[in-house]
């Protein structure tokens, strides 16, 4: 199957300021792709290029097999802008009806169902909506026409935890239906539950693309066991992936690198009263993974400064 997004050397300069440079990205059909990076790294630039809001300085891209300049392609995309602007006296419901009409029609029931799901009041003039409620309207318009490809720029901003939860459920449904999602965020925690793969962009460059499941397997996890009686330390030493082992009487704590299988089997020989396993902090792994690369980049940057012009 052809890629939903394919870019080659995609580059965008705003005057002399770099927005994005040499992006080679492929997003596969049916996946949820998390697009991560700090503010100003180039996430929104990428997204706006894919939607033909801005034009590349150089490089090539195709979206759903076509050039994004083709208006018909945009009808197959649902887009939530990072800075959604809704204003005026117009009611949210009227605006949604307008957008739905231009995109070829969406049933009233579908809009009403989404509004109910996100607990959005569509009878309020848009200028009077709070940030969170505007975001809900933005999500409804992005999802309502059941697009093949959803592009969501910082979708969870301003949403309360319950609505965030509902939103993630909606993303999972989209994936289950075989449709594709690109969502950006500046923190991994926001996307790791739903994303299949994540890409990290820093200072206008894509520095890594990783499979989330593989990442999780590599994750460093802090684990504590409480046994009914003191356990011998030797039984747990030198187990694969076990580090920072500490045994104090009946309590054992350590970190696990990767699979916890060997540790679990060793522990199973004793009576386990209580087990604590903290969620792995994927963010931390990323930082460790790519800190080397960053240092190198920083060295290049410094070298660049010293070079005579």
């Amino acid at each position: 199957m052809t890629a939903v997004v394919r870019t080659e050397g995609l580059t965008k300069f705003y005057g002399r300021r770099r927005g994005l440079e040499d992006l080679d990205l492929e997003i596969r059909p049916g996946e949820v792709f998390g697009y991560l990076g700090p503010n100003g790294a180039g996430k929104t630039t990428t997204i706006r290029l894919l939607l033909d809001v801005i034009r590349p300085t150089r490089g090539r891209m195709s979206v759903l097999g076509s050039d994004p300049r083709d208006p018909a392609v945009r009808g197959r995309i649902g887009y939530l802008p990072g800075e959604l602007a809704l204003e005026g006296r117009e009611k949210a419901g009227e605006y949604l009806a307008f957008l739905a009409g231009v995109r070829g029609g969406v049933s009233r029931d579908r809009i009403a169902a989404l509004a109910e799901r996100l607990e959005a009041d569509l009878s309020v003039p848009m200028g009077k909506l709070s940030k969170g409620n505007k975001q809900k309207v933005g999500l409804i318009q992005a999802f309502m026409h059941e697009p093949e490809f959803l592009i969501l720029d910082e979708p969870t901003g301003g949403l309360d935890p319950l609505v965030q939860h509902e939103f993630l459920a909606m993303v999972r449904e989209v994936r289950a239906a075989g449709r594709t999602v690109l969502m950006s965020s500046h923190v991994l925690a926001e996307v790791e539950d739903v994303a299949d793969r994540v890409g990290i962009v820093r200072q206008g460059r894509l520095v890594a693309v990783e499979d989330v499941a593989a990442l999780r397997e590599k994750a460093v996890r802090r684990v504590e066991f409480h046994f009914d009686a003191p356990v011998p330390r030797e039984e747990f030493e030198d187990l694969p992936g076990v580090r920072d082992l500490r045994v104090e009487g009946a309590n054992l704590s350590c970190t696990i690198d990767g699979r916890p299988d060997a540790l679990i089997k060793a522990a199973a020989r004793f009576t386990v009263v209580h087990l604590v396993s903290a969620e792995p902090d994927l963010e931390e792994i990323f930082l460790t993974y790519y800190s080397e690369e960053n240092e190198e980049e920083a060295r290049h940057a410094r070298a660049g400064v010293q070079e005579p012009a």
């Binding site: 208006p71 392609v73 945009r74 009808g75 995309i77 802008p81 959604l84 231009v102 995109r103 318009q141």
Partner: peptide, 14 residues
């Protein structure tokens, strides 16, 4: 200027 054009230009309209 207000930002509402962003969504409009991403509609399937030339």
């Amino acid at each position: 200027e207000s930002g509402t054009l962003e969504l409009t230009v991403t509609l399937p309209i030339d």
